[in-house]
């Protein structure tokens, strides 16, 4: 009866592996389905006006999302302006001066910060910025997104700075260079391409966030570049238009989603290519 038992074992093996293949097919199929729908439904909404015109009321043909494009750019720009210096400097601290008890604690807190649900980040930025200013603003949206970016950039910077070999540090020290110059001009420079990739990924990630912006950046039907005023963003615009009962607004939502997904995917793929080549130190 040995062969029967073996048959059974073989069958279990093959069944499980078939299911494993099937899972991979499901995973890939879902990605393709989402991309396909976004491209098909989105591409038809896109033309030049879409990028340079302001939104029109429903029923009025034409119009675009120029204000939301500019707004997303503004909010993400504000977030980057806050998060990049904080994240990179904190990364330098953790990797270059982190030989103490305080550093692991900061590292842990960065992980905590990273795991806060994005909607909670929105609530926090509301309390931090919107309440004192008594109005929704691009600044509040930027602060919300920066809270999400800081831990990502901190940990990426730390990892990449740590990957710079000690021989490079020693080579610079042996030239009679003070430590701070070694860190800034040699170590940071060596890790710069990697950090830039990490920053790009962080930007792509927060640029696609909606929840933290709902009651911080809020919304604006007009073009605004003022940091102290409510501002329209691509993601909030998609949400508002998708939730509306009007077909033409729904179409605009797909168009914006298409633009968003293209940006996010390009950023991710470029960074993947970068990460493959950059560690040839």
């Amino acid at each position: 009866m040995k062969s029967l038992r073996y048959f059974k074992r073989r069958t279990i093996n093959n069944t499980i592996f078939f299911l494993s293949y099937a899972s991979a097919v499901i995973g890939v199929a879902i990605l393709l389905l989402i991309l396909l729908y976004t491209v098909i439904k989105g591409a038809s909404a896109i033309n030049l006006d879409f990028f340079i015109k302001l939104p029109r009321p429903t029923g009025v043909p034409g119009g675009g999302i120029a204000n939301a494009l500019v707004g997303t750019f503004m909010v993400v720009g504000i977030a980057s302006a806050i998060a990049i210096p904080v994240g990179v400097m904190a990364g330098i601290y953790l990797s270059e001066f982190g030989n103490n008890k305080f550093a692991p604690f900061i590292r842990y807190l960065a992980d905590v910060l990273n795991s806060i649900p994005s909607i909670v980040t929105g609530v926090v930025a509301y309390v931090f910025v919107v309440l004192p200013m008594h109005r929704f603003s691009a600044l509040a949206g930027g602060v919300a997104l920066s809270i999400m970016m800081i831990p990502i950039i901190t940990r990426t910077s730390e990892e990449l700075i740590r990957m710079v070999p000690d021989t490079i540090r020693e080579a610079a020290l042996a030239l009679g260079t003070p430590q701070w110059k070694v860190i800034i001009f040699i170590v940071l420079r060596t890790a710069a391409a990697g950090i830039a990739t990490g920053v790009m990924l962080a930007v792509a990630r927060v640029g696609g966030e909606t929840a933290p912006l709902l009651f911080t950046a809020f919304n604006n039907s007009f073009m605004s570049v003022r940091p102290d005023q409510p501002i329209s963003t691509m993601t909030v615009l998609i949400y508002n238009y998708a939730s509306s009962p009007y077909a033409d607004w729904n179409a605009m939502a797909w168009g914006a989603a298409f633009v968003l997904i293209v940006i996010v995917l390009i950023a991710n793929i470029v960074s993947k290519i970068f990460t493959k080549t950059k560690y040839a130190l």
Binding site: L31, I34, Y37, E209, T210, A211, Y239, A242, V264, N268
Partner: peptide
């Protein structure tokens, strides 16, 4: 890469796709 891309798609796009 494709599985990782699935993680990179913004939540709002999942919502849009889920809804429509």
């Amino acid at each position: 890469l494709m599985i990782e891309m699935l993680a990179a798609i913004p939540s709002i796009i999942y919502g849009l796709w889920g809804l429509f």
